[in-house]
């Protein structure tokens, strides 16, 4: 029964994205992936939500700058458990071309438990979908499916 509930729940992964100082590339690609007919994540049950409190899968872009760090961590805390975190683009994963800058606090896994990485500069929308599907599997396992 629990397994069935987990399986059904996993068919409704709602997405939320956080921009941690990204150059827009990954961010725009996330918007494209989440919202347009060509990629239509809604057929996977995804919905793109505006409030962190509604989210299940959080997609983070950007290298985590000094000024945005606290805000990102706070918003991340506002997402109810269980949740899955996906790092999109090379910046949150490693700092990318910005690594070593005085204003860069990343990589993100210093502060948050990351589950899935989707490197790329920016990754193709299909790669982001692939990341979401992998995240969904992680999530299903986490809620007991």
């Amino acid at each position: 029964m629990k397994k069935l509930i987990a399986t059904l729940s996993a068919r409704s992964p709602w997405l939320y994205r956080i921009n941690a100082g990204s150059c827009n590339g990954c961010d725009v690609e996330l918007l494209t992936t989440a919202c347009i007919p060509r990629y239509d994540v809604e057929r996977l049950g995804c919905k793109y939500c505006g409030s962190p409190r509604h989210a299940d899968i959080v997609l983070i872009t950007g290298p985590l700058t000094a000024r945005v760090k606290d805000k990102v961590l706070r918003v991340w805390d506002e997402i109810p458990e269980p949740k899955v975190t996906v790092a999109v683009g090379i910046c949150p994963v490693s700092g990318g071309v910005f690594r070593g800058g005085y204003s860069i606090e990343g990589p993100l896994d210093k502060y948050l438990p990351i589950d899935i990485n989707v490197p790329g500069c920016p990754p193709r929308p299909q790669a982001i979908i692939e990341g979401v599907i992998k995240a969904r599997d992680v999530w299903r396992a986490r809620i007991g499916g």
């Binding site: 896994d109 438990p113 990351i114 589950d115 899935i116 990485n117 989707v118 490197p119 790329g120 990754p123 193709r124 299909q126 790669a127 982001i128 692939e130 990341g131 599907i133 992998k134 992680v138």
Partner: peptide
């Protein structure tokens, strides 16, 4: 090859 998603 654009498949880049992988677990942490």
């Amino acid at each position: 090859d654009w498949h880049s998603a992988h677990p942490q």
